[in-house]
């Protein structure tokens, strides 16, 4: 069983919802990332999504675009991202890491090379936001061969037939994009999300994560009521941006935000237990 599946099994046994923070690797400086990842785990992260910076992040809003620009100022590439994961693994063998990014940087080094580096570094999953199932046969095969889970997106616009296809391709968990829009855009509607998730549950037994539009403890807890995992990105990245000139305070500040969400989710999980 993959580290991601194991993580969800454990949480399920405890009646807990997973909390998945997203940060862009190397934002605002490469050395901040590993301490930040440890701080996030201490604050209650169950899985971490680590963004591979890309020059043209067309599915992201301005907050994550700027994070990519800050990381790229330091030329942070996949090679560096792998080093960060490796360094994180020196102290942490349990928390699954999912790399999230766009196709081109991965294509540039080649799928096989990427898979080998990822496996070696201790990466557990990968989500390429601009590669739909239709274009991912070779990629998925190679990741499968290396025991790396390919995470796929389902959106409000995804038809039931597509849900079925995506479910058959997905490994680890499925990431439901809660709103029509880019990351960090509007607030989500929990009842709409709940309806889509119940459709999706008819097609798959994989855990379902929900991201886009989760901003605070309240929205995190609301989503925890319907999902197996809560993904939070832009809110944390905005906090990173605000602390870009006070980097010594940055990990604690970002972790503090995440801890609020953890508490809110735990309170909800307990209440419904």
């Amino acid at each position: 069983m993959s580290r991601i599946s194991q993580c969800f099994e454990n949480l399920k046994a405890d009646g807990q919802t997973a909390l998945i923070p997203y940060v862009t690797a190397g934002d605002p400086e490469p050395w901040v990332t590993v301490p930040l990842l440890h701080a996030l785990v201490d604050a209650g992260a169950d899985i971490i999504e680590l963004g591979i910076p890309f020059s043209d992040p067309m599915c992201d809003g301005p907050v994550i675009q700027k994070a990519c620009e800050r990381a790229l100022k330091n030329d942070v590439s996949i090679k560096h991202v792998m080093k960060m994961v490796k360094q994180f693994r020196d102290k942490n063998k349990e928390t699954p890491i999912v790399l999230m990014g766009y196709a081109n940087p991965i294509e540039a080094i080649g799928y096989q090379n990427f898979a080998e580096q990822a496996k070696d570094a201790g990466v557990d999953g990968v989500l390429t936001v601009d590669v739909p199932p239709e274009e991912s046969d070779e990629f998925r095969q190679i990741m499968d061969d290396h025991g790396i889970d390919t995470i796929y997106l389902v959106a409000p616009t995804t038809s039931p037939e597509r849900m079925e296809t995506i479910a058959s391709y997905a490994r680890g968990f499925i990431y439901y994009v809660s709103i029509k829009g880019v990351t960090g855009a509007a607030a989500l509607q929990v009842d709409e999300v709940a309806e889509k998730l119940s459709q999706l549950r008819e097609k798959t037994n994989l855990p379902l994560g929900v991201g886009f539009g989760i901003r605070d403890g309240k929205s995190a807890a609301a989503v925890a009521g319907v999902a197996d995992a809560v993904v939070v990105g832009s809110t944390l990245v905005r906090c990173i941006e605000e602390h870009a000139d006070r980097m010594d305070e940055l990990p604690a500040a970002v972790a503090g935000l995440l801890a609020e969400m953890r508490h809110a989710i735990n309170a909800r999980d307990l209440a419904s237990a």
Partner: peptide, 9 residues
């Protein structure tokens, strides 16, 4: 077709 899932429909 290399776009995010939201645009596939």
């Amino acid at each position: 077709r290399f776009v995010g899932e939201t645009l596939m429909g």
